[in-house]
Simulated assay, not measured.
Amino acid sequence: MGNLFAGPHLWIILIIILLLFGAAKLPALAKSLGQSARVFKGEMKAMKEDDAPAGDTAAGATDAPATGSTAPAAEKPSEQDAPPRSA
């Protein structure tokens, strides 16, 4: 049972997928799968970051993280308005 996706089983599964979706749709299917995985990974990372500061404040930390302030957001537009640097 542990060797289910080896040898001829894998080839049979790939052929069935090819027959169901067609060769033209497989790249789009793979692209959407990759984008979904990327979004899922980003959401999981954001959830972990949200949980980390909550755990620090519950432990009695008195320093506020610098990422929560509005100052970095105000700096970003000025960086975008700057002319490009010459090499």
Rank of each mutant, 00 (worst) to 15 (best):
A37V: 02
A59R: 07
L20G: 02
S69E: 10
P84R: 13
A58M: 05
L20A: 13
K41W: 04
L4Y: 09
E43T: 08
G60F: 10
A82E: 14
S69W: 09
I16A: 07
A64R: 02
R38H: 01
P53W: 15
Q35A: 09
A61T: 14
L20P: 00
P65G: 03
M1T: 08
A6Y: 04
T57W: 04
M47Y: 05
A30W: 02
A30E: 05
P84G: 06
A24D: 08
S78N: 06
A58L: 10
A61K: 09
K45V: 09
F5G: 02
S36P: 03
Q80R: 11
N3C: 12
N3K: 15
P72G: 04
I16D: 08
F40V: 06
I13M: 15
M44H: 12
T62W: 02
L4A: 13
G55V: 04
I17M: 12
A71W: 11
A28S: 15
D56A: 12
A28N: 06
A71Y: 03
I16N: 03
T67P: 01
G34S: 09
A58W: 03
A54D: 09
F21I: 00
G2W: 03
Q80F: 15
P53M: 02
A58D: 03
S32R: 13
P77A: 01
G7S: 04
I12M: 12
G68C: 09
S78M: 12
M47F: 04
A66K: 12
D51A: 11
